[in-house]
Structures are given as structure tokens and as C-alpha cells.
């Protein structure tokens, strides 16, 4: 009994610093932000949200944010699935391939965005190739639009998708695909019927990571986008820093949190329908 009591105190002592830190620097400020969005002139009000939803501009930005995030998530899934499958099943130098996949994560998003500015610029390698091959007469504007933002997002978050998928794929025994093969399934069918459904939980984890990442990323849309391609995160900055409208900025932040949670829940529901056993 005595030992158990001691263990309890030690347990509390061990988690206390972390809990305290999160409470003081995250939960309380977050609570304040939430509270402040429902106030105007010291009394309860929904005006912050009403004026947001009334604004055509906000609805545009909101739509763009969700659209680009979903598109980037989809592209990451499309690119990440074969990559993860290859690394997990066929790669001889697995550690090396994994290192290559996550290597971009060692570079800051700012540097990576600047690199894209060089690559996608009017005199960048892509435009030179397009013109050189005779596909276009003049350099195309590939920068400061939704295209460059999507490219930036995908490159930024693809490693998360690959890692999440690798985690579940490595746990799928090769026996299962062999069993499917011996029962008459081609490699493709075995992949679609066995590997894919069993990888869905990793796909969902990856999708949630990529989607939230895209929704909340700031430097990438700021550097690779333009004033007419604002997203929610750059909008928060604009409201808070340029317009000094903290209440409105907080309301936008709230919208971001709600959307992120909603989409994560949706992804989870979806995965349960494909694979009822996915946790």
C-alpha cells in the first residue's frame, strides 16, 4: 500500500512539469483566445463570426485553404503510397531509402520555399526546360499562385505521409500477399484487396498530419503564394499584425481549429468503413 502511494507521488511529480507547461503556455492562452472571439465590448456576442461568414473575401480564403489542403493531402497519398510500398517490400537498402524519404525534413520550410522560388521562377530550371523543349514559347508564371503553393505543400509534408504508411506496411506480414497469390490473386489484386485495406490506418494518420500541416503552414503559402492567394494562416497574420484586429484573427484561428478537427474525424470515419478493424 505504502509503495503504491509513493509510486503515485512519483508519477505526479514526473508529469507535473509537462502538464504545468502546457497549461500555462497553451491551454490558458487558447482558452483566452476562444473566449475573446465570443465577446464584443465586454459582453457575449457572435459578431466576430457573423462578420467573418458575411465576408465574401473570407469565404474565398476559407475555400482556398480547405481546397489546397485536401488537394495536397490527396497528392501526398498518391505519391506516398507507391514509395512506402516499395521501401517496405522491395527495397534492398531500406534504411538508406527511409533516410532519403525523410531527408527533406532536416531543412527548414523557409529554405525549401526559397528553393522552389528559384526552381519555379521565370528563369528557373522548369521554365527553361518547358521553353527549351518547345512546349511553350515564353516562360510561364509558375510562382505566386495556387500551383506553387501546392507544390510547396506536397514537398513539405510528403515525408510524414511516407513514414505513416511505412509504419503500418512493415507490420503487414508478407505471408498475407503470398496467401492471396496462392489463392489466385495477381500482385495488383493482392495489393488492392489485402495491402491497401490493411494500410488504411497509416493512410489516415498520414492524411491527418498532412492536412493539418497544410492548413496551419505559414511560411510556405506566404512565400510561394501572393496577396490574391491568401489562406487562413496568412489571413490570421494579416488581421493580427497588419490590421491589429486581434478578435477577428482569433476567430479565424478558431475556424482553423474546427476545420482541422472536423476533417480528421471525417478521415477516421472513412477509414473505418474501408477496414472495420482499423483502430
Amino acid at each position: 500500500m505504502k509503495k503504491r502511494g509513493m509510486g503515485r507521488y512519483i508519477f505526479l511529480a514526473l508529469i507535473a512539469p509537462g502538464v504545468l507547461f502546457i497549461t500555462v503556455f497553451m491551454l490558458i492562452p487558447l482558452f483566452w483566445v476562444i473566449l475573446s472571439t465570443f465577446q464584443e465590448g465586454g459582453s457575449f456576442s457572435l459578431n466576430n463570426y457573423i462578420s467573418l461568414l458575411d465576408s465574401v473575401y473570407f469565404r474565398q480564403v476559407f475555400g482556398r485553404s480547405v481546397r489546397l489542403s485536401l488537394l495536397s493531402t490527396g497528392l501526398c497519398a498518391l505519391l506516398g503510397f507507391p514509395a512506402a510500398y516499395y521501401i517496405s517490400r522491395y527495397s534492398r537498402h531500406k534504411g538508406m531509402m527511409m533516410a532519403l524519404a525523410i531527408f527533406p525534413m532536416f531543412t527548414s520550410p523557409v529554405i525549401r520555399s526559397f528553393s522552389w522560388m528559384v526552381i519555379l521562377g521565370r528563369k528557373g530550371i522548369v521554365n527553361q526546360a518547358l521553353v527549351g523543349l518547345g512546349l511553350f514559347a515564353r516562360p510561364q508564371s509558375l510562382l505566386y499562385n495556387e500551383f506553387s503553393m501546392t507544390v510547396g505543400f506536397v514537398q513539405l509534408f510528403l515525408p510524414q505521409m511516407i513514414l505513416s504508411l511505412l509504419g503500418v506496411m512493415d507490420a503487414i506480414p508478407t505471408d498475407l500477399t503470398e496467401a492471396a497469390g496462392s489463392l489466385g490473386a495477381t500482385r495488383l489484386v493482392a495489393f488492392l484487396r489485402i495491402v491497401f485495406p490493411l494500410s488504411v490506418s497509416g493512410l489516415v494518420t498520414g492524411a491527418v498530419l498532412v492536412f493539418t500541416g497544410c492548413m496551419t503552414a505559414y511560411t510556405t503559402p506566404q512565400l510561394l503564394g501572393a496577396t490574391d492567394t491568401q489562406v487562413l494562416s496568412t489571413m490570421v497574420y494579416q488581421y493580427a499584425m497588419s490590421l491589429r484586429d486581434w478578435a477577428q484573427a482569433s476567430a479565424v484561428a478558431m475556424v482553423m481549429i474546427v476545420v482541422t478537427l472536423a476533417v480528421s474525424t471525417l478521415f477516421n470515419r472513412l477509414s473505418r468503413r474501408i477496414n472495420p478493424l482499423a483502430a
Binding site: P173, E178, A179, R193, L277
Partner: peptide, 9 residues
């Protein structure tokens, strides 16, 4: 198979 290799889903 030794591991049965049943499809868990």
C-alpha cells in the same frame, strides 16, 4: 502457412 496467414480484415 505456419502463421495461418488469414486476412485479418
Amino acid at each position: 502457412f505456419q502463421s495461418y496467414a488469414l486476412f485479418p480484415h
